[in-house]
Write a protein that binds this DNA or RNA. Structure first.
Length: 424
RNA sequence: GGAGAGGUGGCAGAGUGGUCGAAUGUACCUGACUCGAAAUCAGGCGUAGGUGCAAGCCUACCGUGGGUUCGAAUCCCACCCUCUCCGCCA
């Protein structure tokens, strides 16, 4: 959520910067609602003050045994008038809130301006794509004999689901464990385990609701509020600090979690239909940082580096992209995507996305800390994949394939697989 | 699934229709006393919003949302959550 004070004071600037993301903020509506709010709020509060003082008088009069009928007659109209004012004000504030909740975050000044992914800026390339002296297979063909089973996934659940068996299942588990171990042992993250179903308040806190409900799997319950399957561990982990006031010395908080992620993929019909690039369910190791506002951009560099480290240790070639204003996610001030080399697609594909959300989520969540002046101040939140496990599995299969269809196990994973050097 | 209890300030805990934004204790901050500390004493100490140059004034907030009333922490309804006992269960 944007800072309403900034909207009041620097409306033109906000509008201009949101426009670089391709978002048209309805400034005229906002200004009109704000003006109306001001007068309506003042008049409502005047009426409330009047009611309070008259009611107080009635109480005093009654306690003295005086007749209160004249005073009651005096306030006869007040009740209806006040009720109408309060209703009107609530309606107005709902509208303002809707406007605010629907607006994306302001991009940082360092973010390249552009309208879509074509204008993202490559920051660096790491590693050299291997040259093959045989015809490369894609992960679907490579995985099939090793236990990558789309037919069963489809039978059990439908399209965009897969089942893993034997060596592939084991490699998948090894990848997740390797990532989580690296972040907790070497990068200073606290391992967390979280619910995979969360309430609407949590989804609203991180920004999935109210605007992106169609992207989520919703679980309705007859006698309780609905729950939502998490689309990323960012949701439960970031919400750890919802409605909390942290001590300054607790910051930064660094959490890492391995969870499944569930996405409806509404609107992506026909995209990546083959293979496990785009699934309704996939595993991901996620990093989340809760930091002091002054350090959030440094933290973004650090966190992105942690994700890069996984790719480097796995010796997978990748490139780092600075997303342009038009391609960034809803709540982000700045995002780096890491794209891994996929030989079969002869291209780089997203495997991690690392974002500094600034105060955007913290404001929705009311996640604060006591600052140096003793004031409650919003924290900044960051998150990044470190990494998407399913896509890493794809990358390992394709990059480490041999002419006979076997897969060489990356060195760092061997200890997780009982020393195994090849998947056959 | 059945039965019951309960959600009040950082924490504990009073308050069951009227000068209650809320007693009291505790924690915390400031000052006094002290060589210093402890103890003691005095004062301060919630959040959000409106308005004002400012001092200040005003409004809202006692789990959440509705309702009754001139007036609600207090009464009514719904929901959320926590705890206890029984049953079932990985």
């Amino acid at each position: 959520m944007l800072d309403i004070n900034q909207l009041r004071n620097e409306l033109d600037l906000v509008v201009e910067r949101l426009a670089t993301r391709g978002y048209t903020f309805n400034a005229a509506e906002f200004a009109a609602l704000e003006a109306e709010r001001k007068t309506l709020q003042t008049s409502t509060q005047d009426l409330q003050a009047k009611r309070n003082s008259v009611s107080k008088q009635i109480g005093i009069a009654k306690s003295k045994g005086e007749d209160v009928a004249p005073i009651l007659a005096e306030v006869e109209n007040l009740k209806g008038e006040l009720g109408a004012a309060e209703t009107a004000l609530a309606t107005l504030q709902d509208k303002l809130n809707t406007l605010l909740m629907g607006a994306p975050n302001l991009p940082d000044a360092s973010v390249p301006v552009g309208k879509d992914e074509a204008e993202n800026v490559e920051v660096l390339r790491w590693g050299t794509p291997r040259s093959f002296d045989f015809a490369v297979k894609d992960h679907v063909d490579l995985g099939a004999p090793l236990g990558l089973d789309f037919e069963t996934g489809t039978k059990l659940s439908g399209s965009r689901f897969s089942a893993l068996r034997g060596p592939i299942a084991r490699l998948h588990r090894a990848l997740a464990q390797f990532m989580l171990n690296t972040h907790t042992n070497e990068h200073g993250y606290e391992e967390v385990y979280t619910p995979y179903l969360v309430n609407a308040a949590s989804m609203t806190g991180t920004g999935q609701l109210p605007k992106f409900e169609e992207d989520l799997f919703k679980v309705s319950r007859p006698d309780a509020e609905p729950l939502y399957l998490i689309p990323t561990a960012e949701v439960p982990v970031t919400n750890f600090v919802r409605d909390e006031i942290l001590k300054a010395e607790q910051l930064p908080l660094k959490f890492a979690a391995h969870t499944p992620c569930f996405r409806s993929e509404a609107g992506s019909y026909g995209r990546d239909v083959r293979g496990m690039i785009r699934q309704h369910q996939f595993d991901k190791v996620e990093m989340v940082q809760i930091v002091h506002p002054e350090t959030s951009f440094a933290a973004l560099e650090e966190l992105t580096g942690h994700a890069e480290r996984i790719l480097q240790l796995l010796e997978l070639p990748y490139r780092k992209m600075a997303l342009c204003t038009g391609d960034m996610g809803f709540g982000s001030t700045k995002t780096y995507d890491l794209e891994v080399w996929l030989p079969a697609q002869n291209t780089y594909r997203e495997i991690s996305s690392c974002s500094n959300m600034g105060a955007f989520q913290a404001r929705r969540m009311q996640a604060r800390f006591k600052n140096e002046a003793g004031k409650n101040e919003l924290v900044h939140t960051l998150n990044g994949s470190g990494l998407a496990v399913g896509r890493t599995l794809v990358a390992v299969l394709e990059n480490y394939q041999n002419v006979d269809g076997s897969i060489t196990v990356p060195t760092v994973l061997r200890s997780y697989l009982g020393g195994l050097e090849q998947l056959v």
